[in-house]
């Protein structure tokens, strides 16, 4: 059992939970995820690690309550226990294996959308702690849904906020912000790392390719076990089938078949809609 030691609402229906999981905290790296279950009948939900503290033995996750299972997770209170919190799973971000000196000369841009700001945070923080300053774009539909701006602001060299309605920062989506930075503000980047809704990552990847900038995307596919057993997370990358859980979750964004990935996310939509409906009635 894993104790929720802190819980706070970052935006409507989006919660941060800090969970006591010493073994996971000891091994976690930026880019990895955990599998969480809220109760005995609960689904195994993959959630990207949002932060970890090896000394305190805690790991943070950010959950958007969108379906039955995520609602059950956020319904748990501070001090309550999660029956399952397994991980860290997946490959850590590629840069953690690279030469620090080389990384210092590379210009990184992180592009986060919605809840994607959460998994971007430990990556930016890791780079910051290794003396590498990076730019970050955080986008959301409006000011209310901009997540972790304060935290990101402390570890990013430049933090750019973009909102669809212009209620905060740049008026436009993250791709428009990217174009603004490169076309009008003279920014130059060697590598883009993007995490957020699949459709957003698709357009970021297209823009990155247009500019000839290497891009990496973190895929939040369907999963059950998260260890390579079920294959529900199959994605096509450069024409080859990969398992997001063990080969990813981060892949070369130029090569990802985003249309297929988006279609595969809808595999259980009918069943989920029924479950949501039932849940709301009861």
């Amino acid at each position: 059992m894993f104790k929720i030691i802190e819980k706070r609402e970052l935006a409507p229906d989006i919660w941060l939970m800090n969970v006591e999981a010493p073994r996971v905290a000891r091994s976690a790296q930026p880019g990895q995820f955990v599998i969480v279950r809220a109760c005995e009948a609960g689904e195994r939900i993959p959630l990207t690690v949002a932060d970890y503290d090896r000394e305190k033995g805690t790991v943070s996750i950010v959950i958007q309550a969108v379906g039955v299972s995520t609602r059950k997770i956020v319904a748990l209170a501070e001090g309550e226990l999660l029956p399952d919190f397994a991980g860290p799973l997946g490959q850590p971000s590629a840069f953690i294996h690279e030469d620090i000196e080389e990384l210092r000369h590379r210009k990184f841009l992180f592009i986060a959308g919605g809840v994607g700001a959460a998994p971007v945070y430990p990556q930016v923080k890791w780079l910051h702690e290794h003396g590498i300053g990076v730019d970050v774009i955080v986008g959301a539909r409006n000011s209310e849904f901009i997540l972790l701006a304060d935290e990101l602001g402390k570890v990013a060299r430049n933090l750019y906020i973009a909102t669809d309605d212009g209620s905060e920062g740049f008026h436009g989506n993250v791709t428009a912000m990217l174009r603004e930075l490169i076309d009008n503000r003279g920014a130059e980047y060697d590598e883009i790392i993007t995490i957020g809704p699949m459709i957003m990552m698709k357009y970021v990847a297209l823009a990155a390719k247009e500019y000839g900038i290497k891009a990496t995307a973190s895929l939040n596919t369907l999963m059950i076990d998260g260890t390579g057993m079920c294959g529900a997370c199959r994605v096509s990358v450069g024409g080859h089938t990969k398992f997001a859980c063990v080969d990813g979750p981060e892949f070369d964004a130029w090569q990802i078949d985003f249309d297929e990935a988006m279609r595969r996310q809808t595999m259980y939509r009918t069943q989920e809609a029924e479950a949501n409906h039932k849940c709301r009635i009861s």
């Binding site: 059950i224 529900a232 199959r234 279609r263 809808t266």
Partner: peptide, 19 residues
């Protein structure tokens, strides 16, 4: 093989047995 509706026996059985 990546069409919706194609699953491994492992996925199908794990959903039913474990889950």
């Amino acid at each position: 093989e990546n069409l919706n509706g194609v699953v491994s026996a492992n996925e199908f059985l794990t959903r039913n047995n474990l889950m």
